[in-house]
Design a protein around this nucleic acid. Sequence first.
DNA 1: CTGGCGCGC
DNA 2: GCGCGCCAG
Length: 269
Amino acid sequence: MNKKNLYSVIAALILLGVFAYNHFLDEKEKAEIVEIGNTIKTNTNEYFLPTSTHGQIVHHEGYSLSYSEPHEQAEWVAYELKKAHLSSSNFKRPYFEIDDAVKTGAAHWRNYKQSGFDKGHLCPAGDRRYSKFAHDETFLTSNISPQEHEFNAGIWNKLEQKVRYWAGKYDGVFVITGGVLKDAMKTIGAEQVAVPNMFYKVLMDYNNGDPKIIAFLLPHEKSNKPLYEFVVSVDVIEDLTGIDFFSQLDDGIENKLEASSSYKNWSFN
DNA sequence: CTGGCGCGC
DNA sequence: GCGCGCCAG
């Protein structure tokens, strides 16, 4: 072996070592997040899951979802955004992948290609920045819905940022979000991914044992209106979607909370 | 922050 | 096909 070849071999071994070490770190980090995920589920995540109208609930480490095969997207995505989840770390956005946990087959990202619609996150990447694993896990096609860019980057983004603000202020909030799925909707792509006309977000703060709820229903269009103008009661969203939220609560409490469209307990600044 | 897209290897 | 850099709201 001449000198040049020897250097090449050494360089290759160094690269291999770096790769193996990074892989080891990923696995270790993943194991830790699995633990965090299980802890969340034994607390409030599983406890507050809504009903599924399509019978296909899928659990990931950072969020759970109910997949509607006819609409090729989730009817709801649920997760807890804890104060400790808030992070300023900045991960590179990975490519979207098909969610293998959806047994009927989640949509391919190609349906969105050149459709004119964003691949709009339901569980935002910005809410799962406490680890690279949790962040990258939001880039599954079961976690997106077709959204107009001006809606996604506008009022919807504003609402997502408000949720992060509340998660910090109230030491964590429970989040359920999705598009309102109906029959005969406009679709995109070969798999006919439905384009919702409305999106909703339901929040609960269960931090001090005295739960408070707020719900938003937004038309799928650009808006400059203040967010509080989109507050509705949970009952309104249940009527529209057929989903039952917070059925785990005591009926008396549930009925009272879900009938209210008051937002006096939520700071809009 | 929320995203798309074109280019080049 | 994937990574990178640039673009918009």
